[in-house]
Simulated scan of single mutants.
Amino acid sequence: MSQMKPVSQLQLRPAASVEVEAYLLGAMSVAAFALTLPCAKILAGHLSAMQIGLFRSMLAALAALPILYFTRSACPNVSQIKRLLLMSLGVVYGFPILTAVGMQHVPVGHGGAVLAALPLATAIFGTLITKDRPPLLFWLASIAGFVAVAVFAAIRSDMGGGIYLGDLALLGAVVLAGYGYAQGGALSKEMKGWEVMCWALVLNLPVLLPLALLNFNVADFSGFGAVQWGALAFLAFVNSLLAFFSWNRALALGGIQRISQLQFLQPFFTYSYSIILMGETFDPLALFICIAVITFVVVSKRALVKR
Rank of each mutant, 00 (worst) to 15 (best):
L211Q: 07
A200E: 02
G225M: 11
A177V: 10
G185C: 06
S188V: 02
E195L: 06
L211R: 03
Q228A: 10
D220M: 04
A186S: 11
Y179H: 10
K192N: 13
Q183M: 15
L213D: 02
A200G: 15
M197H: 10
F216A: 12
S222I: 08
Y181G: 03
G193P: 03
S222M: 08
K192D: 12
F224I: 08
P206A: 06
L209Q: 00
V227A: 15
Y181R: 07
M191L: 14
K189I: 03
F224H: 03
A182I: 06
Q183A: 15
L201F: 09
A177T: 11
V202Q: 05
L205W: 09
G193M: 09
A212K: 02
V227Q: 13
E190V: 10
G184N: 11
G178E: 06
F216V: 09
S222D: 07
A177S: 15
A177R: 08
A212L: 03
D220R: 03
A177W: 12
Q228P: 02
L214Y: 12
N217H: 14
F221D: 00
A226V: 15
A226D: 13
A212E: 03
P210Q: 03
G184T: 15
G184C: 07
G184R: 07
F224A: 01
G178P: 08
Y179P: 08
L211P: 02
V227Y: 11
G184S: 08
W199I: 09
K192A: 13
M191W: 04
K189L: 14
V218R: 12
L211V: 10
Y179L: 13
L205F: 08
V207I: 15
G193N: 11
K192E: 10
